[in-house]
């Protein structure tokens, strides 16, 4: 089903999407928010720029975006996939518990904040370019990958990555010298086994965005892991 969104308010657009069971192709998207919120088992493709909270609480649907997306992509998503050819704004993948988000370009602040994992659910966030400050804040599970495929010489992540991280794993391409990680995480260069673990994901990302997997995997990767699952253990005394 094709929808020309250029003259629709977000409520109208989302109602049309909810009321059809077909896959949806949206053109002329102009910042409409909450597209595909809570949607399951459908394919949504978007030309133009979807607004904030694209795919919030997503429950199995697959969304592809030809250009950029804005803030809060995949907020609290449970299952499904969001694939973005351009860049995304802040707080992408907030508290996502399952599914995957691939961003070919850059991500803003707080990408992957509160990301979790639970049983068979293992969320994945892959950023092709660079990530803003507070990447993976309070990360509790899942995998975050940043490939840094830009050539502008800027750092692959902004300030304060992994603050409060207490679960999951992060792969940052390169040796990450000069990046200040907080005390409660440890970093090391990925060994062969870890690179092998990353490779299938990289292959899928590269296939989607016409990139060369070998070229990307040919670099060092920094692996970030939390020291403990209980970083906020504060000494309390019962009163």
């Amino acid at each position: 089903m094709h929808i020309d969104a250029s003259k629709l308010e977000f409520g109208e657009l989302n109602e049309i999407i909810r009321n059809t069971e077909a896959d949806v192709e949206i053109t002329g998207c102009m910042g409409q928010r909450f597209i595909a919120a809570g949607l399951s088992d459908r394919k949504i493709s978007i030309e133009g720029v979807p607004g904030n909270a694209l795919g919030a609480y997503l429950n199995g649907a697959k969304i592809t975006v030809g250009g950029n997306a804005q803030d809060a992509v995949g907020d609290t998503m449970n299952e499904g996939g969001i694939y973005i050819r351009g860049s995304v704004g802040d707080a992408a993948g907030y508290a996502m518990r399952g599914g995957e988000i691939f961003v070919r370009g850059n991500a803003g602040y707080r990408a992957g904040i509160h990301m979790k994992a639970y049983k068979e659910k293992h969320p994945t966030l892959v950023i092709g370019g660079r990530a803003g400050s507070f990447l993976g804040e309070y990360q509790a599970g899942g995998t975050i990958v940043v490939l840094g495929l830009n050539e502008d010489g800027k750092s692959i992540v902004g300030n304060f990555p992994c603050t409060g991280m207490h679960g999951g794993k992060m792969f940052l391409r390169g040796s990450c010298e000069g990046i200040a990680f907080p005390k409660q995480v440890t970093t090391h260069l990925a060994d062969e086994a870890e690179k092998a673990e990353l490779r299938p994901l990289a292959e899928r990302f590269c296939a989607m965005f016409d990139l060369d997997t070998d070229e990307i995997m040919n670099e060092d990767f920094t692996v970030v892991l939390p020291d403990t699952k209980n970083p906020f253990k504060q000494m309390y005394v019962t009163n």
Binding site: D75, D90, A91, Y94, R110, H114, K116, F134, A140, K229
Partner: peptide, 16 residues
């Protein structure tokens, strides 16, 4: 919906 033994942290601010 979090693993056993993992802290459940709800910070005071919603960071979004």
């Amino acid at each position: 919906m979090i693993p056993e033994g993992s802290d459940a942290i709800s910070p005071a601010p919603h960071h979004d």
